[in-house]
């Protein structure tokens, strides 16, 4: 697999037919909590997970569809890119920055999941638009597969 490049390569996300799930910009920004899916379905998170691999995204679509996005399109909407490289750099020991977490076992498990899925995060923490659906659809265009 060639090295993923931000300017050249898209990211993918498997989600429902009706659009990518809405994040919650003001929610707990812990990266480990997000990656480990702690607190389960319906929990608020400021992140949307994506992957370098279309195959991985298809595996998660489960009856929905795969959305394609490009990182250079995110900044105008206030969406920040947390790359796989950055995530892996922070997911060590008890974590660093937003990946700091009380449990090293959970930090390492989150790291394993990031590696397996070639995961990147779209961070909506700084998004202030009242039209969140519009921002999400602009970042993950429903027409781009």
């Amino acid at each position: 697999m060639s090295t993923w490049k931000q300017r050249r390569d898209p990211l993918f996300r498997g989600d429902g037919e009706g659009g990518v799930q809405l994040p919650t910009p003001g929610a707990d920004p812990s990266v480990v909590r997000h990656i480990l899916y702690l607190d389960g379905p319906g929990r608020p998170t400021p992140y949307v997970s994506t992957t370098e691999s279309r195959d991985v995204a298809e595996g998660f679509a489960k009856g929905g569809r795969v959305y394609q996005t490009r990182v250079p399109d995110w900044a105008p909407h206030g969406v920040v890119h947390l790359s796989r490289k950055e995530l892996l750099s922070n997911l060590r020991g008890v974590g660093k920055g937003r990946a700091r977490w009380p449990s090293a076992q959970q930090v390492m498990t989150a790291r394993r999941y990031v590696e397996e899925a070639a995961e990147h995060l779209a961070d909506f923490s700084g998004v202030v638009s009242e039209d969140l659906r519009g921002v999400v659809d602009a970042v993950f265009p429903p027409g781009r597969r």
């Binding site: 899916y37 997970s49 999941y113 899925a117």
Partner: peptide, 8 residues
């Protein structure tokens, strides 16, 4: 990315 799979 593992998401819901972790509660499956």
């Amino acid at each position: 990315m593992h998401g819901t799979q972790l509660v499956s």
